[in-house]
Amino acid sequence: MEVKHNIGFVTLLLTMIAGYCDTVTFVAAGSIFSAHVTGNFIVFAYQFVKGSDMNAWVKLLTFPVFILAVIVGGRIAAKVLNHYTILFWEGLLLFLAGILVAVLSYNGVFTEVMMYTVVMITVFAMGLQNAFGKLYAKETHGPTTMMTGNVTQASLDFGNLIKNKFKDPDSWVSLKKQLITILGFLVGCFLGAYAGKQFGLVTLVFPGLAMIICFYYHRKN
């Protein structure tokens, strides 16, 4: 089986994981976005003018961490043949982040510093996913961590369908692809919000396992 037959599945998985991680860190770790790192600028600015403490400055650290992750993703891609190696490392980081939370919480030493450390590991993992999307654009239906472009394309497709009385096959195909990305991200957000509120950052093990399984599946096909 060729990888191209699994584009829909890979797209759905990646968007769900991005939505999940983004929401888990926002809910369980001081309102920090791990996928939409530019959103942290908005939250930081809001907290700054509201007179928040120095912890608000931590949000700015997500930007250089994200940049470093994308650079590393590019280096990995240059040295391997399997495109999904980047996703393996992403999954491993998320899995280890969740395990770290579990171990530290069990021993009663999960401090605020460790919480931010886990968040930055998650940001790094999302940076790798962004690098994957840019380097291997044909492996997915579109960006998997930022939905603005996908919503824009879906809106254009829908407009074309209205214009052509819903008889434009190309617009239908494109719209279906965009819906996979948008709905996948939305589902991931709901799951991440629930998991983050009920169980916290330890639930990062689940997207980590999913990504690792995805890598081994595509390694065999």
Rank of each mutant, 00 (worst) to 15 (best):
I99H: 02
H83A: 14
G98E: 12
L104H: 02
I86E: 04
I86S: 11
N82W: 00
V123L: 06
G98A: 06
T122G: 05
N82T: 06
V123N: 03
M115A: 02
V109R: 08
T117S: 12
L92W: 04
S105T: 12
Y106M: 11
V123G: 04
Y106G: 06
V113K: 12
L96V: 12
T111Y: 13
M114P: 01
M120C: 07
W89H: 08
L96R: 03
L81P: 11
T111L: 02
E112L: 14
G98P: 03
G98T: 09
N82S: 15
T111E: 05
M115T: 06
E112K: 15
L81R: 15
L81N: 15
L81Q: 15
T117V: 01
W89E: 10
E112H: 13
F124K: 04
M120A: 09
F124T: 03
A102Q: 07
E90N: 13
M114A: 07
F124D: 06
W89G: 11
A97H: 08
T117F: 13
M120G: 10
E90G: 14
M120T: 09
T122F: 00
T117N: 08
H83M: 14
M115H: 02
M114F: 14
M114C: 07
V119F: 00
V113N: 11
V113H: 07
L94Q: 10
F124V: 03
L100E: 02
N107W: 05
F88Q: 09
E90A: 12
I86M: 11
I86F: 11
A102L: 12
G108P: 06
E90L: 10
I121N: 01
E112D: 11
V123P: 05
V113C: 00
L100M: 11
L92Y: 09
F95H: 07
M115L: 11
G108R: 05
V123K: 00
F124M: 04
F110G: 03
I99M: 11
M120P: 01
V119A: 02
T117R: 02
T111G: 08
A97G: 10
L94P: 04
T122I: 15
I121D: 05
L87C: 06
L92D: 07
L81I: 02
F110S: 00
I121L: 01
Y84R: 13
L96Q: 04
F110K: 04
L81C: 11
M120Q: 05
T111Q: 13
T117L: 06
H83K: 15
E90S: 13
G91I: 15
W89N: 07
F88N: 09
I121C: 05
Y106C: 05
W89K: 08
G108I: 09
L100K: 04
T85Q: 12
I86W: 05
F124W: 08
E112Q: 14
W89S: 09
E90V: 14
L87D: 00
T85D: 11
V101H: 09
V123T: 11
L81D: 15
Y116D: 03
L94A: 14
E112V: 11
E90Q: 14
T117G: 14
I86C: 06
